[in-house]
Nucleic acid binder design. Structure first.
Length: 214
DNA sequence: CCATTGATCGTCT
DNA sequence: GACGATCAATGGT
Protein backbone atom coordinates (compact mmCIF):
# COMPACT_ATOMS: atom_id res chain seq x y z
CA UNK A 1 0.00 0.00 0.00
CA UNK A 2 1.13 3.54 -0.65
CA UNK A 3 2.49 4.99 2.55
CA UNK A 4 1.08 8.48 2.14
CA UNK A 5 -0.93 10.72 4.41
CA UNK A 6 -0.81 14.33 5.46
CA UNK A 7 0.25 13.14 8.89
CA UNK A 8 3.14 11.07 7.59
CA UNK A 9 4.42 14.05 5.59
CA UNK A 10 5.22 15.63 8.95
CA UNK A 11 7.98 13.04 9.38
CA UNK A 12 9.05 12.57 5.77
CA UNK A 13 11.66 15.33 5.85
CA UNK A 14 15.22 15.68 7.13
CA UNK A 15 15.25 14.89 10.83
CA UNK A 16 16.80 18.22 11.80
CA UNK A 17 13.85 19.99 10.19
CA UNK A 18 11.29 17.71 11.79
CA UNK A 19 12.61 17.69 15.35
CA UNK A 20 11.84 21.28 16.42
CA UNK A 21 8.39 21.17 14.81
CA UNK A 22 7.38 18.27 17.07
CA UNK A 23 7.58 20.49 20.17
CA UNK A 24 4.06 21.35 21.31
CA UNK A 25 2.56 18.41 19.46
CA UNK A 26 1.17 15.30 21.11
CA UNK A 27 1.95 11.61 21.57
CA UNK A 28 -0.79 9.46 23.07
CA UNK A 29 -1.21 5.82 24.06
CA UNK A 30 -4.57 4.15 24.46
CA UNK A 31 -4.59 0.97 26.56
CA UNK A 32 -7.35 -0.99 28.32
CA UNK A 33 -6.56 1.13 31.39
CA UNK A 34 -7.24 4.37 29.54
CA UNK A 35 -5.57 7.11 27.56
CA UNK A 36 -2.48 9.12 28.43
CA UNK A 37 -1.54 12.05 26.21
CA UNK A 38 1.68 14.04 26.42
CA UNK A 39 2.58 17.40 24.92
CA UNK A 40 6.22 17.28 23.85
CA UNK A 41 8.62 19.81 25.35
CA UNK A 42 12.02 18.25 24.58
CA UNK A 43 13.35 16.08 21.73
CA UNK A 44 16.67 15.01 20.20
CA UNK A 45 17.53 14.34 16.56
CA UNK A 46 19.61 11.32 15.48
CA UNK A 47 20.77 11.28 11.88
CA UNK A 48 21.68 7.74 10.94
CA UNK A 49 24.81 7.08 8.93
CA UNK A 50 26.39 10.49 9.51
CA UNK A 51 25.90 10.63 13.24
CA UNK A 52 28.28 8.86 15.67
CA UNK A 53 25.63 9.23 18.40
CA UNK A 54 22.99 7.28 16.46
CA UNK A 55 22.15 3.64 16.94
CA UNK A 56 22.20 3.39 13.14
CA UNK A 57 25.75 4.74 12.79
CA UNK A 58 27.27 1.30 12.27
CA UNK A 59 24.57 0.03 9.98
CA UNK A 60 21.46 -2.03 10.31
CA UNK A 61 21.01 -4.53 13.13
CA UNK A 62 18.01 -6.35 14.50
CA UNK A 63 17.57 -3.70 17.18
CA UNK A 64 17.58 -0.63 14.94
CA UNK A 65 15.76 -2.15 11.93
CA UNK A 66 12.71 0.11 12.33
CA UNK A 67 14.90 3.18 11.82
CA UNK A 68 15.62 1.97 8.29
CA UNK A 69 11.94 1.80 7.39
CA UNK A 70 9.41 4.48 6.45
CA UNK A 71 8.85 7.64 8.52
CA UNK A 72 6.21 7.99 11.21
CA UNK A 73 6.87 4.62 12.85
CA UNK A 74 7.86 4.00 16.46
CA UNK A 75 11.39 2.82 17.34
CA UNK A 76 11.62 1.53 20.93
CA UNK A 77 14.91 0.43 22.50
CA UNK A 78 16.06 -0.90 25.87
CA UNK A 79 18.99 0.66 27.71
CA UNK A 80 20.92 0.61 30.99
CA UNK A 81 19.53 -2.84 31.71
CA UNK A 82 16.17 -1.46 32.84
CA UNK A 83 14.77 1.43 30.79
CA UNK A 84 12.85 1.81 27.55
CA UNK A 85 12.92 4.88 25.32
CA UNK A 86 10.96 5.78 22.20
CA UNK A 87 11.68 7.54 18.90
CA UNK A 88 9.65 8.57 15.89
CA UNK A 89 11.35 7.62 12.62
CA UNK A 90 12.01 10.52 10.21
CA UNK A 91 13.26 11.08 6.69
CA UNK A 92 12.56 9.03 3.59
CA UNK A 93 12.21 5.25 3.68
CA UNK A 94 15.70 3.75 3.94
CA UNK A 95 17.36 6.74 5.61
CA UNK A 96 17.82 5.73 9.27
CA UNK A 97 17.04 8.88 11.23
CA UNK A 98 14.74 9.41 14.18
CA UNK A 99 13.68 11.80 16.93
CA UNK A 100 14.04 10.68 20.56
CA UNK A 101 11.12 11.88 22.70
CA UNK A 102 12.90 13.20 25.78
CA UNK A 103 10.23 14.95 27.84
CA UNK A 104 6.76 16.38 27.89
CA UNK A 105 3.75 17.50 29.90
CA UNK A 106 0.95 15.04 30.61
CA UNK A 107 -2.23 16.71 29.34
CA UNK A 108 -4.67 13.77 29.54
CA UNK A 109 -4.80 10.77 31.85
CA UNK A 110 -2.84 12.43 34.65
CA UNK A 111 -4.10 10.01 37.32
CA UNK A 112 -3.23 6.98 35.19
CA UNK A 113 0.22 8.41 34.50
CA UNK A 114 0.70 8.98 38.23
CA UNK A 115 -0.16 5.36 38.98
CA UNK A 116 2.49 4.25 36.48
CA UNK A 117 5.07 6.65 37.91
CA UNK A 118 4.96 6.08 41.67
CA UNK A 119 8.44 7.56 42.06
CA UNK A 120 7.35 10.91 40.62
CA UNK A 121 6.92 13.35 43.48
CA UNK A 122 5.51 16.18 41.39
CA UNK A 123 3.30 16.68 38.35
CA UNK A 124 6.18 18.00 36.30
CA UNK A 125 8.26 14.87 36.88
CA UNK A 126 5.67 12.52 35.31
CA UNK A 127 7.32 12.62 31.87
CA UNK A 128 10.49 14.62 32.55
CA UNK A 129 13.05 12.37 30.86
CA UNK A 130 12.93 9.82 28.03
CA UNK A 131 12.48 6.70 30.18
CA UNK A 132 9.97 8.48 32.41
CA UNK A 133 7.91 9.63 29.43
CA UNK A 134 7.75 6.07 28.15
CA UNK A 135 6.80 4.78 31.59
CA UNK A 136 3.95 7.30 31.88
CA UNK A 137 2.66 6.08 28.52
CA UNK A 138 3.26 2.40 29.37
CA UNK A 139 5.30 1.90 26.23
CA UNK A 140 7.57 -1.14 25.97
CA UNK A 141 9.09 -3.38 23.35
CA UNK A 142 5.65 -4.50 22.19
CA UNK A 143 5.24 -0.98 20.76
CA UNK A 144 8.35 -1.21 18.59
CA UNK A 145 7.35 -0.86 14.92
CA UNK A 146 3.88 0.59 15.50
CA UNK A 147 2.67 3.19 13.02
CA UNK A 148 2.21 6.46 14.92
CA UNK A 149 0.48 7.98 11.88
CA UNK A 150 -2.29 5.38 11.81
CA UNK A 151 -5.35 6.69 13.68
CA UNK A 152 -6.16 3.07 14.60
CA UNK A 153 -2.79 2.54 16.29
CA UNK A 154 -2.92 2.49 20.10
CA UNK A 155 0.25 4.59 20.17
CA UNK A 156 -0.18 7.56 17.88
CA UNK A 157 0.88 11.09 17.06
CA UNK A 158 -1.78 13.76 17.43
CA UNK A 159 -1.03 16.97 15.56
CA UNK A 160 -1.34 20.17 17.54
CA UNK A 161 -0.06 23.70 17.29
CA UNK A 162 3.75 23.61 17.18
CA UNK A 163 5.73 25.86 19.50
CA UNK A 164 6.86 29.07 17.77
CA UNK A 165 10.52 29.07 16.75
CA UNK A 166 11.14 32.05 19.01
CA UNK A 167 10.41 29.92 22.08
CA UNK A 168 12.63 27.00 21.06
CA UNK A 169 16.19 26.54 22.30
CA UNK A 170 18.79 24.06 21.11
CA UNK A 171 21.97 22.63 22.57
CA UNK A 172 24.15 19.53 23.00
CA UNK A 173 22.56 16.12 23.32
CA UNK A 174 22.39 14.27 26.63
CA UNK A 175 24.28 11.19 27.78
CA UNK A 176 26.29 10.45 24.65
CA UNK A 177 29.90 9.30 24.60
CA UNK A 178 30.17 10.27 20.91
CA UNK A 179 28.53 13.08 19.00
CA UNK A 180 27.06 14.82 22.05
CA UNK A 181 28.44 18.19 20.96
CA UNK A 182 26.15 18.39 17.96
CA UNK A 183 23.41 20.83 19.05
CA UNK A 184 20.59 18.53 18.07
CA UNK A 185 18.59 18.65 21.29
CA UNK A 186 15.59 20.97 21.09
CA UNK A 187 13.42 22.15 23.97
CA UNK A 188 10.76 24.70 24.92
CA UNK A 189 12.50 27.59 26.62
CA UNK A 190 11.61 27.82 30.30
CA UNK A 191 9.22 24.88 30.37
CA UNK A 192 9.36 23.12 33.77
CA UNK A 193 8.99 19.65 32.23
CA UNK A 194 12.24 19.86 30.26
CA UNK A 195 14.69 17.28 31.63
CA UNK A 196 17.76 18.07 33.69
CA UNK A 197 20.94 18.14 31.63
CA UNK A 198 23.40 15.40 32.50
CA UNK A 199 26.64 14.98 30.57
CA UNK A 200 27.86 11.49 29.73
CA UNK A 201 29.65 9.71 32.56
CA UNK A 202 31.81 6.71 31.63
CA UNK A 203 31.06 3.64 33.71
CA UNK A 204 33.33 3.24 36.69
CA UNK A 205 34.98 -0.09 37.32
CA UNK A 206 34.29 -1.41 40.79
CA UNK A 207 37.41 -1.66 42.94
CA UNK A 208 39.01 -5.08 42.81
CA UNK A 209 37.98 -5.72 39.23
CA UNK A 210 40.75 -6.36 36.79
CA UNK A 211 41.79 -3.82 34.21
CA UNK A 212 42.40 -5.15 30.72
CA UNK A 213 46.01 -5.08 29.38
CA UNK A 214 47.47 -1.50 29.29
C1' DC B 1 19.76 23.26 44.96
C1' DC B 2 24.01 19.91 43.60
C1' DA B 3 27.05 15.68 43.20
C1' DT B 4 27.61 10.84 43.62
C1' DT B 5 26.51 6.05 43.12
C1' DG B 6 24.16 1.50 42.44
C1' DA B 7 20.92 -1.01 39.75
C1' DT B 8 20.61 -4.26 35.80
C1' DC B 9 20.68 -6.84 31.12
C1' DG B 10 20.17 -6.59 25.90
C1' DT B 11 23.16 -5.69 22.36
C1' DC B 12 27.20 -5.55 19.73
C1' DT B 13 32.23 -6.65 19.20
C1' DG C 1 33.24 -8.86 27.93
C1' DA C 2 32.09 -3.95 27.98
C1' DC C 3 28.96 -0.53 27.65
C1' DG C 4 25.03 2.13 27.46
C1' DA C 5 20.23 8.06 23.80
C1' DT C 6 18.73 6.55 32.44
C1' DC C 7 16.72 6.97 36.99
C1' DA C 8 16.09 7.19 41.97
C1' DA C 9 18.00 7.36 46.43
C1' DT C 10 21.13 9.47 49.31
C1' DG C 11 23.73 12.94 51.59
C1' DG C 12 25.78 17.57 51.54
C1' DT C 13 25.28 22.81 50.96
Amino acid sequence: MAMTSALRDVFDRPVLQVAPTLLGQIIEHETPEGLVAIRLTEVEAYDGPNDPGSHAYRGRTNRNAVMFGPPGFVYVYFTYGMHWCMNLVCGPDGHPSAVLLRAGEVIEGVELARSRRPAARTFRDLARGPARLVQALDVGKECNGLDACDPASPLRFRPARPVPRSRIRRGPRVGLANGAERPWRFWVDGDPTVSIYRPHTPKRRRSGESVSHE
